[in-house]
Amino acid sequence: MANQKRDDYLLQSLIMGDDKGIKEIYRKLYPKIKAYIVSHDGSEDDAKDIMQKALLQLSARAQDKDFRITSSFDGYFVTICKNLWRRAAKLSKSRVTNEGVIDLVHEEREIALAAYEQEKWELFQEKLLGISQNCREVLAFFFNKVPYMQIAEKLGYATENTVRQRIFKCKSKLKEAIHSDARYNELREL
């Protein structure tokens, strides 16, 4: 099956609830997901759980007729799983440290919340790609908490203050790009 056809078939299986197609997704992607989770402090059961949640999340989102995957199905699905694992770590950390009480909610609600967060994450990533290469570089360092001094050294800025100004401008541009996108406002609708 040609790649695009195969990807369409897999997505369609998830939309319609066709177990044969979904099994194909397991065959193709579960070993990758398991390898990732196990190498990131998870167990095989965690991998199974993440796989199920990712499939349900994607099915819920793909019911929208405008839903499109712009990369390959495989790459997209693996990204969802990686993000779900990051999310699980954050949830567990927040519960352990009591940083704002995170109540347990029923499973459908939890998957719906994760789907929403993933959708927002994708929009933010798309907007980041839309700004200049230089801004992306400086912001990648900033958002990943690299100290200003090190950013100056890495990117050849004369002073820490120049870095601060650059970050300020880039963040403002990025904020504008997100803010003016209709999908951001749609996400915020109550």
Partner: peptide, 21 residues
């Protein structure tokens, strides 16, 4: 944008999209 973090949305707010999913 923090690669080691994840944004958990406020569970007390019911966004239309969450409800829809």
């Amino acid at each position: 944008y923090d690669e080691k973090n994840w944004e958990l949305i406020d569970r007390n707010i019911t966004y239309k999209k969450v409800e829809h999913y």
